[in-house]
Nucleic acid binder design. Structure first.
Lengths: 155, 155
DNA sequence: ACTTGACCTAAACCTGACTTTAGGTTCTAA
DNA sequence: TTAGAACCTAAAGTCAGGTTTAGGTCAAGT
């Protein structure tokens, strides 16, 4: 199956200008063109878009993704490198998930804090509440990495 | 307790230039200075750094964070707005977690794919394996949002 | 043949979030 | 009281990841 750039943009939600930018950056090696120079996206390119999405989310830059795609062109000789890349990404994303979980806990605490404040009509109430009055499930709120060294309340 | 910019940078891992940038952007309302103009960080500012970290992770820009901090200055009149912001962020982060979970599944599939390829000595092996030969737990790999409309294999 | 919507390129532009630079001031310890 | 580390500002620079612009070309229907 083949698709025009406009069709791909419409179905994926990726801007036409972005697709052209990716192409400029070499993310679609061997993409075909019509006689007149018009891009012909195929399932190959759609697959690549999936890989780009995955690797981008996992924290790679466009240039790094290009590097990976270059390795794919090299054939079986680069299998080890490619494998390692994915294991590394898996580790990174696992960390990201933990980070995000901590952020969720903080947000949940804030939601509780403001619900309590609104119910009381003033922020002074949740602010002065002792830990013992804070619901168990909200106390999952314990601060993360870089600020661990300092304590935490409400600005 | 009071801290110099250098101390804060060292304990939080945030660059001095970044702390000064945040200050320039107004993220530390009412931060004190010494007679000579030297910043005096207090626990108030450290708390704000925690909020910045949380809101940044949840997808807010520096300008939006500044806005929130302005609301905090307004007092109880802005409680509702602040509450809504955190509920909204909670929803956004929940979506982000789902996104990340899908990315994890894709990565796990890729890890399996390359392990299989390396064991066989060639990518041709996992590439041509029928779905039925792919381990159950790896098949959690089903593609996400924007590319759902197209199918998925290996570029 | 002709129109018109979709496509093309190169090059300039944009934004966010910092960082660097250049030149000067403050603080602390000997 | 003076050296040097740590601090200050304003302004310019950087980088990624696009987007916009200007000026064309292509292709499908009439």
């Amino acid at each position: 199956m083949q698709y025009s750039i406009g069709e791909v943009a419409k179905t994926t939600g990726i801007a036409i200008s972005t697709l052209r930018y990716y192409d400029r950056e070499g993310l679609f090696p061997n993409m075909e063109r019509s006689g007149g120079g018009i891009r012909r996206f195929t399932d190959k390119e759609i697959e690549i878009l999936g890989v780009i999405e995955c690797l981008k989310t996992s924290g790679l830059s466009i240039k790094e993704i290009k590097l990976f795609l270059d390795w794919c062109q090299e054939g079986d000789g680069s299998l080890q490198k490619r494998r390692n890349l994915f294991y590394e990404r898996l580790a990174v994303v696992t960390k990201q998930m933990e980070e995000l979980q901590k952020t969720m806990n903080t947000l949940r605490f804030k939601c509780w804090y403001y619900d309590t404040a609104l119910a009381a009509g003033t922020e002074a109430v949740p602010k002065s509440l002792p830990q013992s009055e804070i619901p168990e499930d909200i106390l999952a709120y314990q601060r993360s990495g870089c600020l661990k060294s300092f304590e935490q309340t409400e600005p």
